[in-house]
Design a protein around this nucleic acid. Structure first.
Lengths: 183, 183
DNA sequence: CCAGTGATGTCAGCTTCTGTCATCACCGTA
DNA sequence: TACGGTGATGACAGAAGCTGACATCACTGG
């Protein structure tokens, strides 16, 4: 055994989610989270840039998956379907952690500060997707529009998946279908 | 003349935008803004919920315009065109204040904290638009998707308008056209 | 002339977040 | 075995964001 218990970062994530859920984000101080995780407040800020970021540790991984899927998609697939297929890849990450994702989504839905951070992560995802589309030769503004539309599909599909639709890929497919039908 | 100079709120907005522009959002303290506006820090927080909100005072007005436009649109117009037409109504607000809007957009683009707040306002706009569409009988998930797509069009069109395309309505029209072509 | 109202000032205090230095188990190397 | 470097953590001070409580005082209506 080391000098400290291992995985301080993971303990901080769990502690934060528990406290955000039970007493709410605003009523939770970083000192509370740190104490529950068995570290000091200063250590929290070494692992996470701020009090919100503790719930968004996996966003980089998700973005990497999506970008790779866009880059590796068949060359003749239309932009919107490329992004749609890439969003389906997110299922691999999500389905494994369904209970965590649901509890996390509930905490975020309950607090505007956390919603802001979520929206920023989704905007970053959209920018990265647009960049990947441009790498495939899709011009502007089509790349940005397809990326934004894809993220919109993701948002709606994710909401349905959290709200008891068990198959995320199916959620994305039907949602994308509805979007296409709108025109 | 009253006990105090009138329009403290307006002076705070101007002072904040000037300071965010010249020395940056993070390097500006609320005390700086208040001093430049000739009030105390406490008065700043009476007019604005936090340091970011000072740049988003007009967002409620914009949302009201858009919702009214959706509610009052011709009954047979397809949802996406309803939202598109509503976004064009934003031109009335924007074209009047072009220099202000440009300087404000530059400040926001330079700082992630301000971007978060902007994204939250746009998400609120999207929610309100979806609600207005539902009021017209558009079912879910079509209402949310059309609203999200409309906001995506707004974002891209706004970016082009700020970047020297003088006619906002034209930006919305051509951007919406590109989106439709994607499907 | 006077009481009520509303915008502001003053001040104390909590929380978030940062900079800086100290500690000390672990690891590779001599 | 001894020893110096490394990296995660603790301890502490302090700036800045934000809130609650109370005081002030021009203005307003009666």
């Amino acid at each position: 055994m080391g000098r400290w218990e291992p995985d301080a970062k993971g303990r901080l994530v769990v502690a934060a989610l528990e406290l955000y859920t039970s007493r709410g984000y605003e009523q939770t101080t970083v000192a509370d989270i740190a104490q529950r995780a068995g570290v000091t407040e200063r250590t929290f800020f070494r692992h996470f840039a701020d009090k919100r970021e503790v719930l968004f540790d996996g966003s980089g991984e998700l973005q990497g998956l999506v970008v790779a899927a866009i880059t590796g998609a068949p060359a003749d697939l239309p932009p919107l379907d490329v992004v749609g297929a890439a969003m389906e890849r997110a299922a691999e990450l999500l389905e494994q952690r369904r209970p965590f994702a649901q509890q996390r989504a509930a905490a975020i839905a309950a607090n505007p500060s956390l919603q802001e951070r979520e929206l920023l992560k989704l905007a970053a995802l959209s920018s990265a997707a647009a960049e990947a589309l441009r790498g495939r030769g899709v011009p502007e503004p089509d790349a940005s529009l397809a990326a934004e539309a894809g993220v919109a599909v993701f948002k709606v599909a994710f909401e349905r998946w959290v709200d008891d639709q068990p198959d995320f890929v199916a959620c994305v497919r039907t949602t994308l279908g509805r979007l296409k039908a709108l025109l």
